[in-house]
Amino acid sequence: MDTKGIVICGVGGQGSLLASKLLGRVLMNEGYDIKVSEVHGMSQRGGSVITYVRYGEKVYSPVIQTGEADYIISFERIEAARYASLLKEDGVLITNTQRIDPMPVITGAAEYPTEILDELRAKNVKLEAFDALSLAIEAGSAKAVNIVLMGQLAKHFHIAYDKWIEAIEQLVKPQFVEMNKKAFALGYEFTA
């Protein structure tokens, strides 16, 4: 098979690290070669963050460039638009519709482009946009947005549901396992 690419993007502190860990664990357990690339440091402080996940028989580059992503998972609306050009022509963009104002918007130096997802849709981008935050809160914590989004992504994979749950059990602290399983289920069941 060709190497597949998944981009996970959002705002520093939103929990993209756990999402990429979960994805990495599930894909490794399926026997794929895999690389996950993330950037630590500066960008953790409320900046735009991006993680690349690539898997296949043999993976070389750890990064995803223009037109190479099969999926983009975005934790925030304009972050989805920021990295949309990484998507392949037939790729799928899954995004949380939550709005988090960046500092230039807060200070009034820039405006938040509220209609930007419609613009992408008009350009025939396959978009699955939904309020993952509400589902996360329903599951028990606003912090579970990452796992809700992973649930939505999992629908696109031919990997048994139980394998995802198994990986959640391995990665999450025992006291948070049930909440995250519920978040995953809510994301999985939701039709965006």
């Binding site: 705002v11 900046g47 304009i78 972050e79 949309a84 960046p102 230039p104 482009p113 209609e115 350009k123």
Partner: peptide
Amino acid sequence: SVSADTVVPNRPP
């Protein structure tokens, strides 16, 4: 690739 024409504001740390 496809991208939006609207400029996305920066999100610096």
